[in-house]
Design a protein around this nucleic acid. Structure first.
Lengths: 131, 131
DNA sequence: TAAGTTGCGTTATGCTATAACGTGTGCCAT
DNA sequence: ATGGCACACGTTATAGCATAACGCAACTTA
């Protein structure tokens, strides 16, 4: 695990995400942090950019929102592929890692001589509680 | 295969996507169709909504863009899961279907009592030609 | 101390998507 | 045939997401 000292803004943004049950949009984060002196979207986006880089936060492409990583202590997030279920009712997000899927996608890419960068896997639906 | 008569706007939007090598954003489509009388984003979004419904077009969540379905004649797209590779250099998109991944994700959802709706799988990277 | 790097704040702008309202057309049940 | 309905369409306005470009301050390193 790589430990980096976070700046004040980064800490605040990560805190907002960690405290939230559901994923947050950048603008929602901004509103939550106005009390701390945040005034512009860029303050949020710049912090998010770093947090994503550090593997402490994930971006959910299909809903334009962000969540704190569920296993920030491990390094799993940084290289391995991360998949998500996203409940469309309550917003609950579950993060998981699957080696079989990872291999399968890697194989497909190899076959096509495609050099994979970031991979997105997101299942939107309804969680147990929201049936 | 379900065959539906497309409206003029739907035909024009699908045409724009079919002719394009790379995925197009809604606003790019709008610009391409100004000559045909398009004036507002909603004309494009409304057509896209229907085309997505018919399974003739896919939305690429990670780049906010749209592509014509590679196999519109089959029904594969409507139920089965569709995955994509997206070249970040040339924009080329390859669509594929993998039963193993599909099963694996379905199994994961079952285990968690998660009712899956739409699933997104997108690999961004670089295609053979763009190495 | 000069140059480079990094984070920060601000203003402005651009891109993506939808709300709300009204029009016209075709269908078909009465 | 006419009233009601469903649907596509057009328009204006607005909401929501993201970045460009500028300049300042703190810190590092040579």
């Amino acid at each position: 695990m790589t430990s980096t000292q976070l700046t004040r803004n980064q800490t605040l943004v990560l805190g907002a995400l960690s405290q939230s049950e559901a994923p947050l949009s950048a603008y929602t984060i901004l509103d939550k942090l106005r009390g701390e002196g945040f005034r512009a979207p860029l303050q949020v986006y710049r912090a998010l950019e770093k947090l994503l880089e550090f593997g402490l936060v994930h971006r959910l492409e299909s809903i334009n929102a962000f969540v704190a990583c569920a296993h920030p202590h491990q390094d799993c997030c940084s290289h391995g592929l991360t998949a998500f279920t996203i409940c469309e009712s309550c917003g609950k997000v579950t993060e998981f890692h699957d080696h079989v899927i990872e291999e399968r996608l890697a194989g497909f890419a190899r076959d096509r001589n495609f050099k994979p960068g970031k991979t997105t896997i997101e299942i939107r639906g309804h969680c147990d509680g929201c049936a």
